[in-house]
Amino acid sequence: MHSLHDRTPWLALIVIGAGIVLTLFPVWIAFTASTLPPQAIARGDLLLPGAEGAATYRTILFEGARTSRMAAPPVSGLLWNSLIMALVIAAGKIAISVISAYAVVFFSFPGRMLAFWTIFITLMLPVEVRIVPTYQVVAGLGMLNTYAGLTVPLIASATATLLFRQFFLTIPDELVEAAKVDGAGPMRFFLDTVLPLSRTNIAALFVILFIYGWNQYLWPLLITTRADMDTIVIGITKMIGAGDALTDWNLVMATTVLAILPPALVVLAMQRQFVKGLVDTEK
């Protein structure tokens, strides 16, 4: 082992250092810009944070950016929309996937394979390949500009169902039989044994799906037309407008930082589950 790493890993340190700079630099610049006055940004003095941060964040969070060039709603509302969307999508996907995987794995019934393939096929039908008709269905159901419209159409999940199925197949037969002898029926076994055993899988999926929900773009763009229903990610791009020098970059970057913070915190706080979730869902 040691002989393969005998030299001081200077090269490794340099490369990793460059990687870290590359990773953090854009976020750092966004942060400093959010704390600087527009004049400083225009001059390009971006490497160190300024003193305007508190005011900028207070403005965008609670009043919204109302300048001569734009009238964006308060970011607190957008954050709330994103949070609802991410939580409902993550919880919804997990809930309906865990029960459908349970049905497919622990029961035998006519149409079982058909049901499985129907779920599986959704892997090949992302929103991006059925934009207009999906929009029409949601519009037809009167779900435009609603939380239901933002979330329900996304909570089917082949990935989560496959993951749970995979895990359920590893539960020993004897455990099921022991439960039967103990007198537990299917729902009892599900609630008392299968769900508790699925805890780590649920946590891992939650991280991945929370990020998935938070980072949605095309879907909210299609489904919402009212500014107060926008998610924060959509809100940012609307604030950029023409994207030229006239953009209030300090406000945009403050919003950007707020958009990055929640998913980043989830990843940092649930690092282990995140890695597990990412690797497991690709199996």
Binding site: P172, E174, L175, E177, A178, A179, D192, T193, L197
Partner: peptide, 8 residues
């Protein structure tokens, strides 16, 4: 049971 089948 052979493998005891205890609820883990």
């Amino acid at each position: 049971f052979q493998n005891y089948a205890l609820y883990p």
